[in-house]
Amino acid sequence: MGTGKFASGELMAAALVASGAELVTVALRRADLTGGKDKFANILTFLDPKKYQLLPNTSGARTAEEACRLARLGREATGSTWLKLEIHPDPRYLLPDPIETMKAAEILIKDGFTVLPYINADPVLAKRLADAGCATVMPLGSPIGSARGLETRASLAIIIEQATVPVVVDAGLGAPSHAAAAMEMGADAVLVNTAVAVASDPVRMADAFKTAVIAGRSAYEIGLAPQRQEADATSPLTGFLNQ
């Protein structure tokens, strides 16, 4: 789960519990040095590090160099070497830059980070990042916060089929059904934030996503019925009416 956009820290904490999430992302920003009360004061106050694996992100970075700088600050701030590597130079669509992401991943892996890169649903890039030593790949379903679901479905299927590391579908999941669909396809996890945080009842919505993820995972493990062009009757086609 992401921790952004919640109305309060308390509500975020309650939604995290309801979601069953194990990994939780946090961001970094400049502290207010004027001595005033900072309403965004340290988010870690609301996150028990014994309950969650913290995943500081590099949001705001536009280049590999900026991402590496944020990664080191995030590690010091949270004590976590796990990192959500995200580099999106364009604020309108927030699409990740594949070249800068690859460069940063190589540097940060050497530096001892466990790198979880946010990427477009590009199967070749996903393979290159996994081969470079990334712990997962995190392809987007649709742009961050867009709630449009699995617009990249066909490419996600290739990434999942070829994966040698866990695949986390990140970004754009607007409904529990989107999360269930990703899990049915064989994704190992989903990363959700906006859909829960902006809901009228974030705690119930978090629970709805949890249920959807569990259902989708079960369906994947069991295997779905094959799709067919023609109908296949579920009731006996009663012959006597025509006799």
Binding site: G4, R29, R30, P56, A77, N193
Partner: peptide, 10 residues
């Protein structure tokens, strides 16, 4: 100097 703190984010 940069003084940074962890905040909410996705």
């Amino acid at each position: 100097l940069e003084v940074i703190l962890p905040v909410a984010g996705g």
